[in-house]
Structures are given as C-alpha cells and as structure tokens.
C-alpha cells in the first residue's frame, strides 16, 4: 500500500488576542491509501485540527501536509478550495445539509464546481444516493428526513465527486445507536467495497472499533497508535 497522506512534524498554534495556544506539537502521521483511520482523544486534544489540516481547511503553522503527492500545506486559500472540491469529501457531526435544497440538490452541490454537465451530474448524484440507500428520497428536503437519513445524504454529498479522501468529524455524534450503527456500516462499506480512504474523528470507542486503525491524541501529541502498521503508523 502506498502512503496517501503524509503529515510531517506539523505544529499548529492559534492566536487568541495576545495569547498563543499551541494545538498540535510536532505531529507526524502517515495514512496509506484505502486506510480507515480513527482519531480519538479528549476535547481540545487537537484531533479536529489535525483533520482540518489533512482536509485542507486549515494550514499548519509549521511542518508539511502532503496528500496524494501534493504538498497542500503550501497551497494558498484559492488553490486549497479548488483542491478540496475534487479531493476531499466532508462528513460533519451535524450533517450540515443546506436546508433550502432537496437531497438531490445537496448531493449535487459539490458537483456544481466540476465541469460535469447536467446529465452527468444527475448520474453521479443518483449513484451516490443509491450507495447510501436513499434513491427514493431525492426530492425530500432535509427537514423531511430523519437524522440518520440526513447523515446518509451528507455522506452521499461527500462521495459524489469521488474524492481522494473522506474526512468525518464525529459522524455519529448526533445520532441514536441504530442510526449510528447504520452510518458506521456505510463508512465500512465505502472503505472495503469502494476502497475509500477514510479519516474519522470520534469520541465513541464503538465507532473507532470499525476503523482499521486508531490514533490517540492528547494535548497536541500522538500518544499511542493502536493496531499500528509499521510502515504507515506514527513515526
């Protein structure tokens, strides 16, 4: 397996007025293609910050983030936005669907940034909604869906562009046990059957159990790597 994501000695410091708050302290992580990595740790440990750096939402204070052989930490904001559109699929805890758009239109949203024509977009959306089992809910608005269904639409939105990596921030944090199980099952299928590389932040050990690997962060430092694979684990 080749390394898809390389995080090299990354530091992240936030400035709050006159204070500087170090969040990540020299993190190095390697994620192979097809991996399903869970990031765990207490609140404020830096796991969401690390996820955001890997997803190109934020840039490190120092260090490098390399995804698919591109050093995205060196990209400017515009280039990062373009890169995210085609390489990253986001799954949020609160689903974050656009309330005024239907399920179909929500899934279509990231495709609007591509050069696909209307027919091609429709094909992609139908395929994504089919994978998450919501082909019959295309015309429903978010308010007409259950939490689990909303999250599945969000997953369909995340995979519609066939991104290089899927990043999920507490994807089951707002769901009941049954829906959470369904979402984790779906992520598992995406990882095993569709070979999607998934990086997931979670507090839930059950959710982490569905991942191939789990990394623990505490105060901006990786403290342990369960089920570490020597070539791609913590270095």
């Amino acid at each position: 397996m080749s390394s898809l994501v390389e995080v090299r000695n990354v530091h992240k410091v936030y400035k709050r007025d006159s204070f500087t708050v170090p969040v990540l302290n020299g993190i190095s992580v390697s994620v192979p293609k097809g991996d399903f990595l869970a990031l765990m740790g207490p609140s404020g440990s830096g796991k969401t910050t690390l996820l955001n750096l890997i997803a190109g939402i934020d840039r490190p204070t120092s260090g490098q983030v390399i995804v698919d052989d591109k050093e995205i930490s060196a990209f400017n904001e515009t280039k990062l936005a373009t890169w995210r559109a085609s390489h990253v699929g986001f799954i949020f805890q609160m689903y974050n669907l656009i309330p005024v758009l239907t399920a179909f239109e929500n899934v279509e949203l990231p495709l609007l940034l591509t050069h696909l024509n209307k027919a091609q977009r429709k094909q992609h959306v139908a395929a994504a909604l089919s994978i998450v089992g919501l082909s019959d809910r295309m015309t429903h608005y978010p308010r007409q869906l259950s939490g689990g269904q909303e999250q599945r639409v969000a997953i369909a939105r995340a995979i519609a562009t066939d991104p290089t990596i899927l990043v999920a921030d507490e994807p089951t944090g707002d769901l009941d046990a049954k829906s959470a199980h369904e979402i984790l099952e779906l992520l598992h299928i995406l990882n095993t059957d569709h070979n999607k590389t998934i990086i997931m932040v979670t507090h839930d050990p059950k959710a982490a159990d569905r991942a191939k690997r789990t990394l623990h962060l505490d105060k901006g430092i990786l403290v342990e790597d369960q089920n570490a694979q020597p070539a791609f684990g913590v270095r």
Binding site: E77, A81, R84, A85, V88, N96, I98, P110
Partner: peptide, 14 residues
C-alpha cells in the same frame, strides 16, 4: 455554518 460547509466542499470565498 452553511458558508463554512460551502467552503469545506470547495467553494472559494470569492
């Protein structure tokens, strides 16, 4: 939140 989501999925600020 929606703006943040749009930015996350690749919409530029402009």
């Amino acid at each position: 939140t929606e703006v943040a989501v749009l930015k996350a999925i690749g919409f530029s600020r402009g």
